[in-house]
Amino acid sequence: MPLVALVVAALAIGFEQLIQWKYGPMGIIAFIALTIGLKAKNTAISGLGAIILVMLLAQSN
C-alpha cells in the first residue's frame, strides 16, 4: 500500500508541475481550486477552478 501511495503522490506532483510549466501561476491556482472544491464537495469552488482551466486550455490553442 505505501508503494501505491508514493506512486500516486509522485504522479500528482508531476501533474502539478506540468500545469504550472505550461499555464503558469493561474493554471496552478485553478488546479488547486478544482482539487479543494472536489475534496470539500463545494461545487462553486470546483466549478470556478474548472472554468479557469478550460479558459486556459482554450487560450493556448
Rank of each mutant, 00 (worst) to 15 (best):
F15M: 13
F15G: 06
K22Q: 14
L18N: 07
N42P: 04
S60C: 01
A30Y: 14
G27H: 02
A9F: 06
I29V: 12
G49W: 00
Q20W: 02
A33F: 13
A33T: 05
L6Y: 08
M55H: 01
I45Y: 00
V7E: 15
V8N: 12
L6Q: 13
L56E: 07
V54R: 07
T35H: 03
V54N: 06
K39V: 15
L53D: 04
S46L: 05
A58K: 10
N42Y: 00
Y23G: 01
N61D: 09
A9E: 11
L3W: 11
P2W: 11
N42S: 08
G14D: 12
I51K: 12
I29W: 05
L11H: 08
I52C: 02
W21Q: 06
I19P: 00
I36W: 07
N42M: 04
N61Q: 11
I29H: 04
P25W: 03
N61H: 10
W21T: 05
A5I: 10
N42E: 04
I36D: 01
I19D: 00
L48Y: 14
E16M: 12
S46M: 12
Q59K: 13
L6C: 08
I51P: 01
V4Y: 13
M1N: 09
I13P: 02
M55Y: 04
F15N: 09
I51S: 13
A12D: 13
G14Y: 11
